[in-house]
């Protein structure tokens, strides 16, 4: 059993990878990667039944990063878990590299769906969950959605269909970081009572602080143990969490730090840059 201290250290290492990737590429999406990474660290380390040395294992749990632009976070945890090497992270956004700009199942081991266009992952996850049920497998499907992403209407087609089909093996983690591409969600499209909306669609709902490891572990247990229908963990997060000037700053949804900002970020994350 991994302690929450170990999970926090794992997430810190992933944050360093994330900032390294976007700084090296001078492009990419640090904000949503930093908001999701505590959740991903705990999910991969404590919950997902996957085999880094056999990424295509048929009966693995599925993880679908529907907010596929937040790929640095995914690549960071895949490297720390051993699906890919830390050296592979240098291929982020580089021609021919396995770390494509947005996560792609045809390019990178451990990626279950080619995302990048918002609003698609939950439907794909629903198909994966039906497949698991048809096979009589106990495997679980986890889909990470962004909060801006649920403005896509097709998400709600899937939300409605998942309860109709009583997919207890389908789980969503919502990264509620309150910021989307252009601005705060509140300015772009007010979403009012998000938990009430999912409850109204028949989902099991739990809210947590998405940067509190004890609450995250509790939340993942809730997802695993709620099998009477689909379940959603609404994780309240801070976009850019862990790097002071990125935190809660819409400017770092999709922008890279300059060299000076990079040095500051590394120092804040406890890394000494040579």
């Amino acid at each position: 059993m991994t302690s929450t201290d170990e999970l926090r250290e794992l997430a810190r290492k992933c944050r360093v990878h994330i900032v390294n990737m976007v700084h090296r590429a001078q492009a990419g999406h640090p904000g949503g990667s930093l908001s999701e990474i505590d959740l991903l660290a705990a999910l991969y380390k404590t919950t997902l039944r996957v085999r880094p040395d056999d990424p295509d294992w048929d009966d693995r749990d599925r993880f679908i990063l529907s907010k596929g632009h937040a790929s640095p976070g995914m690549y960071a945890i895949l490297a720390e878990m051993g699906f890919i090497s830390v050296d592979d992270l240098a291929s982020y956004r580089v021609l021919g590299g396995i770390c494509q700009g947005h996560v792609d199942m045809k390019w990178c081991p451990g990626v279950d769906f080619s995302a990048g266009s918002l609003g698609m992952g939950l439907s794909f996850g629903m198909g994966s969950a039906i497949a698991g049920r048809l096979e009589g497998s106990e495997r679980q499907v986890y889909v990470m959605l962004g909060d801006g992403e649920i403005q896509e209407g097709s998400v709600w087609e899937a939300a409605m269909a998942a309860t109709h089909h009583e997919l207890g093996n389908l789980n969503v983690i919502l990264d509620r970081n309150r910021i989307q591409n252009d601005d705060f969600c509140e300015a772009q499209m007010r979403m009012f009572d998000i938990p009430a909306k999912w409850k109204a669609f028949g989902w099991n709902v739990k809210e947590i602080d998405g940067h509190n490891m004890e609450e995250i572990v509790d939340g993942l247990n809730f997802l695993q143990n709620s099998n009477d229908g689909p379940s959603i963990l609404i994780a309240h997060t801070v976009k850019g969490h862990g790097v002071s000037f990125m935190a809660d700053n819409p400017a770092f949804h999709g922008a890279a730090p300059n060299d000076e900002q990079y040095a500051q970020a590394m120092a804040e994350l406890g890394e000494v840059v040579a």
Binding site: F113, S123, F124, G127, S128, S154, A158, M160, A161
Partner: peptide
């Protein structure tokens, strides 16, 4: 819900 349908299909196809 045609948008959902096509991707449910994708999820099924990816699972064999």
């Amino acid at each position: 819900g045609e948008q959902n349908m096509l991707l449910v299909g994708a999820g099924l196809a990816a699972s064999g």
